Simulated scan of single mutants.
Amino acid sequence: MTGAPLHDEPFPELLGNPTQVAVSADERWIAVSSVAHLRSRVAVYRAADLSCAHLLTFTMDAAPETVLFTVDAPLGRAVYVADAAGPALLHGETELVRRAFPAGDVLWSRPLHTEVLDLDAHAGVVHALCADDTLVSVDTTDGTVLGRRPLPPYGPLSLHAAPDGTVIVGTSAGQILRY
Rank of each mutant, 00 (worst) to 15 (best):
3 G>K: 07
4 A>C: 01
8 D>C: 07
9 E>P: 00
11 F>G: 00
23 V>Q: 10
23 V>L: 15
27 E>N: 06
28 R>M: 02
31 A>S: 14
31 A>D: 06
37 H>K: 10
40 S>L: 03
42 V>W: 04
44 V>H: 12
49 D>A: 12
54 H>A: 11
56 L>S: 10
57 T>G: 12
68 L>V: 14
69 F>E: 08
72 D>A: 09
75 L>C: 06
75 L>K: 06
77 R>D: 01
77 R>S: 11
78 A>S: 10
80 Y>T: 09
81 V>T: 15
81 V>L: 01
85 A>T: 07
86 G>N: 11
89 L>A: 09
90 L>P: 06
95 E>N: 02
98 R>T: 08
108 W>Q: 11
110 R>G: 08
111 P>F: 13
118 D>R: 01
119 L>D: 00
120 D>P: 05
120 D>E: 08
121 A>F: 04
124 G>C: 11
124 G>T: 15
127 H>Y: 07
131 A>M: 05
131 A>N: 02
132 D>T: 04
132 D>L: 05
137 S>Y: 03
139 D>V: 07
140 T>R: 04
143 G>W: 06
144 T>Y: 00
144 T>D: 07
153 P>R: 15
159 L>S: 03
163 P>L: 06
163 P>F: 01
165 G>I: 04
165 G>V: 09
166 T>S: 14
169 V>H: 00
173 A>T: 08
174 G>A: 07
176 I>Q: 12
176 I>Y: 05
178 R>Q: 13
